[in-house]
Design a protein around this nucleic acid. Structure first.
Lengths: 229, 229
DNA sequence: TCAAAAGTGTTCTTGATACACCCATGC
DNA sequence: GCATGGGTGTATCAAGAACACTTTTGA
């Protein structure tokens, strides 16, 4: 069935920058393209927006279809609309970024999407389209956002140690942080609940596990939030 | 001439939230609609994106056509894509916000666009489409942005007094600020150059005029900026 | 007993806040 | 001379930055 319009229209897509965190490294999920243009190149997961679905829904659908990801933190990033970003025709892309707990999704991504892979953001290959720009924008946004909203927790398993959290912040912000000051500050928000369990991971003292108190945070957020790292 | 596609496509528009500042009040520029839908309602200036122009270019073109505004500070805000935001068909809108020195453009807007008017953001009428959402998003963004980037100056004439600047910040942030602390901080950035002139405006002591040092700011911005209010 | 990461407090410095009076002008 | 907004400094408090040693475990 054909669709006819008086004026030419741009095609509309969504592209998703999916961040994960593993081995002290910030990672991004890429898909190897099977079709032209840029066949064989790595690209951000994404695709066309259907005419009856919202942008958010399109982004979530693409994440599920291309990477087997559901129920992730997802936020709109920026809309990219230069005229020649796609060699075929005019395509405007609404970019999103997502945060996922990598371990939970690593296996799934491996089966559902054999052509999907995690890359350290420091070592991404050459990307298709203007996806390098999109990725850069997403990294900048993440750096900014992580400082005044506790979204870092989305990248960690539900139970985590303070060292894991610190390493995550260090990776995202690309700095070293002082251990004592970091712990003092993070605990001062009173949003982390210490568990009875500890985590042993090697030949050293076991680490206290914590959980993020989402409920408490939501309440605080309503009456004008705080949180600043 | 007709244009035919395999799948239906959303129409793509831009909408602009144009901020001004006058009489101690933050203002927004609205256009009264002459056509259905929402004929007679006030709305944000905006319109369809042409297939051969970038999003930024479309926003600037609409600003010029509908409000006679050129050369303004303009930044992308957010893309609004719920399915039923336009009663006619699926329309996705990339929203922008602009900052203009109101006095410079007030006259022009009055002639070029007789159906354009400035409203205090506290007293906007009922808006067409989802433009109330867009406006709210823009106000939130402006509040956030003004604190760590010196964009407030875009809303003032090139020469301004510290009181004007303070009133602007008070209007945007919706708070009262302490005069001495405000001046101390603002001057500490060393980005305002005091002029030899003063401004007399009533029966009281004349006020020192300042200019924003754009060059110096650009240099600072390159090597990791500062500025926090 | 050694290596490796976990855990813990204090001092110093900096920036934020609170606050009250004199100044120059027009009427 | 009085009303109006312009202009100035200090003291207090809170938050950020710098910094070194002890603890627990596995090998």
């Amino acid at each position: 069935m054909a669709h006819t319009y008086q004026y030419p229209r741009a095609a509309l897509t969504v592209d998703c920058v999916v961040f994960g965190f593993d081995e002290g490294d910030l990672k991004v999920l890429l898909i190897q393209r099977g079709l032209e243009p840029f066949k064989g190149r790595w690209a951000l997961p994404g695709g066309f927006v259907k005419v009856e679905e919202t942008l958010d829904a399109a982004a979530r659908r693409e994440l599920e279809e291309e990477a087997g990801l559901t129920n992730v933190f997802l936020e709109q990033l920026y809309t990219f609309g230069t005229v020649d970003r796609d060699p075929r025709e005019r395509v405007v892309s609404v970019a999103y970024y997502a945060l996922v707990e990598l371990s939970r999704h690593a296996a799934k991504a491996a089966t559902d999407a054999a052509n999907a892979r995690w890359f350290s953001v420091a070592q991404v290959p050459k990307l298709a389209f203007d996806h390098a720009d999109i990725l850069e924008t997403a990294i900048e946004r993440l750096k900014g956002k992580v400082r005044y909203q506790p979204i870092g927790f989305e990248l960690l398993p539900p139970k985590f140690t303070l060292s894991q959290l610190q390493h995550l912040y260090e990776a995202v912000l690309e700095t070293k942080l002082d251990k004592r000051n970091f712990r003092k500050k993070v605990l001062s928000f009173d949003l982390l609940v210490p568990l009875k369990e500890t985590q042993m991971s090697g030949r050293h003292r076991p680490a206290q596990l914590f959980e993020f108190d989402t409920e408490k945070y939501e309440k605080l957020k309503e009456r004008g939030l705080l949180f600043e790292l």
